[in-house]
Design a protein around this nucleic acid. Structure first.
Lengths: 250, 250
DNA sequence: CGCATGCTTGAATTTAATCAACCCTAGTGG
DNA sequence: CCACTAGGGTTGATTAAATTCAAGCATGCG
């Protein structure tokens, strides 16, 4: 998965405006391809399949996940419009991909993609940038799964969803949650019951107001950040000291 | 971090033998650089620092980790001889790096590295391959942290350590564990006590025999694999069916 | 030899999972 | 248009697993 953190559709279109036959942006590669439609729940590819294609998400969203031997599922990410699936792939898909909602994608041959990228000095930095963003996201997820409790996990998740919207305002913002509670649970390493309980707990604290199954209004952004356990806006000048405070909290 | 999964030192030296001024292997870039020594526990760089250099691990091993606001530490990986630190970096280090044991590294300017790579069509595939391996490792770690219990985590860890040794035989093999229990705990998302308990549990089952603090002999490889919860040697032809079995175990 | 650090073991506590019941809502068909 | 139903979601009681707290042991180093 490749989150398009720095590549908003608007920006991308601007880039393409003064562009000849040489695409200077990854998404330009996909632009000529026909749009394919996926119904909610439909699979795009399966873990272990030979990875013949990469995909650009045009609209909607995907979950990517692995299923382990005993049937447990781990969602390693959600993909949205502008994201490209598969740049980090070897010969086989490392994970399965399914549409969460009705979704449109464009398909591009992996071989052709790799040829294009290796020929274009303009495209390569973008591929690297996307890989780096993907890696950074994976690291964040490891931190979340390693040592955050249920409440922190859910708060982090909500913030992540909120920040995907470039025009989000800090408080009184609405977060869309197109995925089910089970999806959220499998993404956060929790159960649906725990996700549900934390959701009502946050609602009781007045931090958010539920607005239907797939929608939530954030009332106290700052509190949500605090509860997420991420030291955003790092105030500390003490980074870099030998050792660290120990693993206990408080 | 970049694990050198497919790049054993022996192979690398063989490659360099018939090699002109154009290096055809990433490690060749580092070869002219002086070796720097790090004492056990010494820091190589800190999370958040400007990433001016990449490093090749020549000997010994490093832990890379992040420390979150309340002092908890998450180890996201261990690095060994042949690994290169920092290919997935942005402008700042995403994590800190410390020597676990006495360690030797070579340093290379990130700018120069990027220039070399972007000029060399031979180097680029290797960079991508390493990034892909790193990504795959991160995914595995997410699966481990998401849904494995303490015993499965420790077994997975031991197997990973065992498999790093190219000449490992399946049973009766010795695994070196240069890191402390706290390192293992912070890597597996557990406490030292739990790691210790699981270690003795495996010893009681006759799966391994402790041989000092930093060494373990594996007696029952197959059992260890089973307990690790990874469906290695996948026997299933049923991958790719719609849906999945559900999240319950058994 | 003695201390310090890392490791192990045990008992109590806490957190989230599990098991079970019930509710709500969207979508269906009468 | 309304009643019914199925699936997703919530809530409560119980259980299990790992953490926390506490004590003691071993190993290595001065």
């Amino acid at each position: 998965m490749l989150q398009a953190t720095h590549f908003h559709p608007a920006l991308e279109i601007a880039n393409t405006a003064f562009l000849g036959s040489e695409p200077n942006c990854l998404q330009a590669l996909f632009r000529k391809q026909p749009v394919e439609h996926l119904a909610a729940g439909q699979s795009l590819f399966f873990e272990g399949d030979v990875a013949k294609h990469l995909f650009e998400v045009v609209e909607g969203n995907l979950r990517i996940f692995r299923v382990i031997s005993d049937g447990r599922r781990v969602i390693t990410g959600f993909l949205h419009a502008g994201d490209i699936v598969g740049v980090s792939l070897k010969n086989h898909y490392l994970y399965s991909a399914e549409a969460v909602t009705d979704t449109k994608v464009r398909r591009f041959s992996r071989k052709a993609f790799e040829a294009e990228v290796s020929n274009s000095p303009e495209l390569r930095p973008e591929v690297f940038a996307r890989l780096r963003d993907e890696m950074a996201a994976a690291q964040d997820q490891m931190v979340l799964l390693s040592c955050k409790d249920a409440e922190e996990r859910l708060c982090s998740f909500l913030l992540k969803q909120l920040r995907r919207d470039p025009g989000h305002c800090r408080s009184n913002a609405i977060v869309e949650l197109p995925m089910t509670r089970l999806d959220i649970a499998d993404y956060l390493g929790l159960t649906i019951e725990t996700v549900s309980r934390m959701m009502t707990k946050l609602a009781n604290k007045g931090i958010l107001v539920s607005a239907g199954r797939h929608c939530v209004r954030i009332m106290k952004y700052a509190t949500l950040v605090q509860l997420s356990g991420d030291d955003d806006e790092y105030d500390g000048d003490e980074r870099g000291l030998i050792g660290y405070a120990g693993r206990q909290r408080q």
